[in-house]
Design a protein around this nucleic acid. Structure first.
Lengths: 216, 216
DNA sequence: TTCATTTGATGAACGCTGTTCAGGAGATAA
DNA sequence: TTATCTCCTGAACAGCGTTCATCAAATGAA
């Protein structure tokens, strides 16, 4: 008997287990993708588990093998969004730029995220804000806001900004960005040109704000 | 027979008809109030016609005697909101102030409206933005935005502002205000102090923006 | 190969929702 | 008193989220 080496059967069993585990993850991801697509198409009202099941090609009950319930499914969509969002914000901030330029880059990243992942943004910040309220799962969310605060703090520490209230300032900047993205996403009556010029002006005004926060 | 004068019976009949008409309006208003209260308490998810019916003291079917359907009921709430909103904005603008101060007053009025009528604001601008998209009923909504545009235009005409793009500028200002009010309303995890300091900073930064838009 | 066990998916069922509608009770008109 | 009209009800239907007994197939052991 070869000492500690797994037998052929053992190896087969392991690979089989792994393959089935991978398949499970694929099904889970398929349901998640169907949910994201459906949420984008139908919004919070028309979105239904039965619709997700049909889109993914399973019966409604199957969803409960992969997610606790409807809220858990939507929360997972939001969570996926927060992770991508955090990466995008950190990437924007870690370009070796001056704090003020970092801030501008983060503003760009914020808007880009909203436009690139509107379904995620809706769940995260518009339709299901209850997820991040009083929930221990709000970690990723707080990290994203912390990234903004850190950058404002750096701008103050470097002497670029006046010593403003960091929390209030970054919350207000967040509000501006959130408002622009929200309107761009939800106001379906806006044509592409209006949306674009509003966002462009938003970026200009963010620059104006940043200038206004400068020392002296 | 006294010529054209109505008989006593005729007078009674008219008053009776009017009284019953008033009672109908009262029931309608009661349903509307119940709906507003319930929407504020439960949000778009938990809000149900059966809940409204119970709150108002009628059976579910009765609501359909006064409103077309659930959307019509919610739209009526939104419409009520738009009317009050328009009055508040016009009041703010018609103080005989300089255009720039009018703009500041309107910003204050905007935030005040959102905080005073959060249920209406949610229906109008957050949860049911589909109402004002591609609908002939969007008149009151467009009027409110027009009020903002008019004031920006006045500031340019009076020489206070640089000749910026009026539509884009007022849309961006709107975005800022909308973001602040949205966060204040929907982020239940904010304590009162954070909410207050964010809104206070928002007003400060609006002032900064207005300064930045001044003629160089 | 054969057979028991485990796994993944199903479809029926429950209580909820929005919505419709035949019917009934009470006020109104004759 | 009687007939008409007005307002409201409660039952019904389809669709929703959710649960669960059941079943087919894949697995692991013999």
């Amino acid at each position: 008997m070869t000492k500690d080496e797994p037998t052929r059967e053992e190896r087969i069993r392991r690979k089989s287990r792994k393959r089935r585990e991978d398949e499970k993850q694929e099904v889970r991801q398929a349901i998640l993708s169907a949910a994201t697509a459906l949420f984008l198409k139908l919004g919070t009202e028309g979105f239904s588990l039965r619709g997700v099941a049909e889109e993914a090609g399973y019966s409604p009950g199957t969803i409960y093998l992969y997610f606790e319930n409807k809220d858990d499914l939507l929360y997972t969509v939001a969570d996926e969004g927060f992770q991508r969002f955090l990466i995008m914000l950190h990437d924007a901030a870690s370009d070796n730029l001056e704090p003020i330029d970092q801030l501008r880059q983060m503003a760009n990243a914020y808007v880009s995220f909203g436009l690139d992942y509107p379904a995620h943004y809706r769940v995260m910040f518009i339709d299901r804000t209850d997820f991040i309220a009083s929930d221990e799962r709000a970690q990723d969310w707080q990290a994203t806001l912390q990234a903004l605060r850190d950058t404002v703090q750096k701008a103050i520490d470097s002497g670029d900004f006046q010593p403003v209230d960091v929390a209030a300032t970054s919350d207000a900047l967040w509000a501006f960005l959130h408002g622009a993205v929200s309107l761009a996403i939800t106001m379906q009556s806006f044509d592409a040109e209006r949306r674009a010029s509003m966002l462009s002006m938003t970026h200009q005004l963010i620059d104006t704000l940043v200038d206004g926060l400068r020392k002296g």
